[in-house]
Amino acid sequence: MSEAGTPAEALTYEQAIANLRQTADTGDRYYAAWWLGRFRMKQPEAIALLIEALDDSLDRAPDGGYPLRRNAARALGKLESPEAIAPLIACLQCEDYYVREAATQSLGELQATVAVPALLKLLEGGPEAIAAIPGKPHLTQPADAVMETLGQLRATVAVPVVQAFLEHPIDKIRLAAARSLYQLTGDDHYAERVVQGLSDPKLQRRRSALMDLGAIGYLPAAPQIAQTLAENSLKLISLKGLLDTHLRQQTPEAIAELDESAIALMDLMDGLL
């Protein structure tokens, strides 16, 4: 949810397709790939072109990366297209870290359980192998995204692998491991490690704990989420994640009834409006 709303350059579907097809202007292609995902253009033609863009070599970033591939990989995650799964799995081998990261996240959004072995390969070597690269702002592998996706995919086979990352020297990685393990095991003590982030002295840490708890829908954290020193908009998104998870777990009749937990969550949300 962007605060100001991007005053999106008004594209039509036809223009976006034409922009993605042409090769003269890399900026127009890059924007078109984003636009197709953002506005959920699920036409087969759009999906085919985006899959093609995963192999693009014309658009190169100063760091050697592939910007168009990154955007295409992100867009495909939003289009609910099973044809994108195999090409995205192939992207997990791309030399560009950000392509691997985007493909990982999109495979999670697509519920691609078939990707689990390829995702586990990115964690090979365990915590020791996932380290900073001198001169780069990222690690050797997008381990946090990989663990989150494994959690999202309920890949219980990954539990021992992910557990080893609870001791990783970088706290962001440790938290991603805890979050993932909660999704994989349902064991509250992993979620409580994420809850601790709500009282971290750094605002950025508190914000990511809010997002993580919303994503895993950990109901017992609701009162602490409401009390966290952070923007109300983030707290509302986090609590909505809890409410969505809670409602999703219920039958339609129970949703119509609105149980006490749902009402308590909404009362907390009202207090943040």
């Binding site: 409410l243 409602l247 999703r248 949703i255 119509a256 609105l258 749902a262 949300m269």
Partner: peptide
């Protein structure tokens, strides 16, 4: 959105 449905229902009730 489920959350908006639920809030509307709560208000109505």
């Amino acid at each position: 959105e489920r959350a908006v449905q639920a809030r509307s229902r709560l208000a109505e009730r």
